[in-house]
């Protein structure tokens, strides 16, 4: 639309990229290189599972037990996970199987939290008018609790915990009473506006049973979201959860989540 667009990209680039910028770029690569490794490892784990799947071994839910790990320090709040989830699972607008929250904490302890459209469109800069000393993004999704209140409270056995450790909703049995939505302390469930049944994260069951990654994990560009299987020998996520200071959300609810957080700050609820 203007001359800027018509200009030769290469020359412009040479002009712009000063030495200082390049140095900064190098530092960034170093800092985030670790994440590239993390991602390729996740991919390697997946390849092993895919190999098994393609070798014609039928999926046995009794041989898997999944867990999820979120590294808060790596989340850049891009919302790629929310968009990928919505596309993969046909999530209706204004409802979320996963979302990203932004926390901004001031020196005096004022907490400003937001999640515009669940973080689906990313985040805009936000002026709180306060001296922000701590700010971070927190991805959220169903915690697939081992002691899940939603399954306990489902009157008809439509919500259940599968042998591989996932909380799922049988769309053909659900009566749409909404009790599970009330019971979930994490706000992970909603009543689907079209099916009128409870809907929630399935950890992309249709993908993971074929050896693929959940859409959100695959979409995460920084490795903030990781997916593991405690039954897989040498599983890295299992190892991190077993050996690192991880936290869970709302431990006072005693729901025993299978979604763990690294570097979670106490403001998060």
């Amino acid at each position: 639309m203007n001359e800027y667009e018509k200009e030769e990209p290469a020359s412009r680039r040479d002009f712009l990229c000063g030495a200082a910028q390049q140095a900064a770029g190098a530092a960034i690569i170093l800092a985030f290189g670790e994440q590239l490794v993390a991602f390729s490892e996740a991919a390697a784990g997946e390849t092993a599972a895919t190999a098994e799947a393609s070798a014609g071994v039928p999926y046995d839910p009794l041989k898997h037990r999944y867990l999820y790990l979120i590294d808060v320090a790596k989340c850049i709040g891009c919302g790629a996970c929310v968009r990928a989830c919505a596309l993969e699972n046909d999530v209706p607008d204004n409802h979320f199987r996963t979302w990203v929250e932004r926390y901004m904490v001031s020196r005096t302890g004022e907490v400003t939290t937001d999640s515009p459209n669940g973080g689906k469109d990313g985040f805009e800069p936000l002026l709180t008018g306060q001296d922000i000393t701590k700010a971070f993004f927190v991805p959220k999704l169903c915690n697939h609790c081992s002691q899940s209140p939603c399954v306990q409270l489902c009157p008809v056995g439509a919500s259940y915990r599968s042998p591989d450790g996932l909380i799922l909703v049988d769309e053909k049995r659900c009566i749409g009473c909404g009790y599970c939505v009330q019971a979930c302390p994490y706000g992970s469930r909603f009543i689907h506006p079209e099916t009128h049944t409870a809907s929630k994260c399935t950890l992309c069951y249709h993908r993971i049973t074929k050896g693929m990654l959940p859409a959100c994990v695959q979409a995460c560009p920084t490795g903030a979201r990781r997916f593991g299987d405690t039954q897989r020998p040498g599983d890295e996520v299992t190892e991190i959860v077993a050996s690192s200071p991880v936290r869970i959300l709302k431990p006072e609810m005693n729901t025993e989540p299978n979604c763990y957080y690294l570097g979670l700050s106490q403001e998060v609820r």
Binding site: G157, A158, C177, G178, T197
Partner: peptide
């Protein structure tokens, strides 16, 4: 009122067919 509220009132009998007794609602 419950039938008016349910997303699937036609499935309301599921609560008698497969009552999940860990749920208070199933005792209904």
């Amino acid at each position: 009122p419950l039938l008016f509220h349910l997303g699937h009132p036609e499935r309301s009998l599921n609560i008698v067919i497969t009552p999940h007794f860990t749920s208070a609602m199933a005792a209904f």
